[in-house]
């Protein structure tokens, strides 16, 4: 029974039924979640920015930080649990990508993150079956590996499931 806590730019996966995979307080960051029904593996990346071209060194050090490097890194990680290297058969869910109130185009970093992630997913022939994106509040995400259940929470709101 363990908790795998992922910080900004981290990614990880587990197939131990007692584990929870968790990330705290997503703002404009997006959590990419892969559920593999065949191997009962759960994977998550906490993506901060859309494009690694702004800092290649950071992308090498922390591939989970950028949309374009996070998804390949997470897929590779999940092959260690017997998952398909191109994500075949996986269920994809996305959450986070929030904005502040009255935002303008420049500050819609959450939206740009989500869009970049979707583009990369398409290139693998993958697409999200469920998403909870945008709005203007922070989200904490917890996934139980045994049930594949994704719970979201935010201060002042009742918890909800994705």
């Amino acid at each position: 029974m363990g908790q795998i806590i992922l910080g900004v730019g981290d990614y990880g996966a587990s197939n131990s039924p007692g584990d929870d995979v968790k990330t705290f307080a997503l703002g404009s960051c997006v959590s990419v979640i892969f559920l593999d029904p065949k191997t009962r593996t759960v994977g998550m990346a906490h993506v901060a920015l859309p494009d690694s071209s702004i800092n290649k060194a950071k992308a090498t050090d922390k591939p989970g930080y950028f949309a374009d490097t996070a998804i390949p890194a997470l897929l590779t990680q999940m092959t260690k649990f017997g998952c398909d290297k191109r994500g075949k058969g996986m269920v994809v869910k996305l959450c986070g990508g929030a904005n502040v109130m009255d935002t303008n185009d420049t500050f819609q970093i959450g939206k740009r993150n989500a869009l970049a992630i979707k583009k990369i997913l398409w290139s693998y022939g993958m697409g999200a079956v469920a998403e909870d994106l945008g709005k203007n509040y922070s989200r904490t995400v917890s996934i139980s590996v045994s049930a594949g259940q994704i719970m979201l929470s935010s201060p002042g709101k009742p918890n909800w499931q994705l």
Binding site: V8, A25, G27, V100, N136, Y137
Partner: peptide
């Protein structure tokens, strides 16, 4: 706040 470091309930609600 966008970076995930607000102070709880008010984060991004400005």
């Amino acid at each position: 706040m966008l970076g995930g470091f607000g102070t709880g309930s008010d984060s991004m609600r400005y």
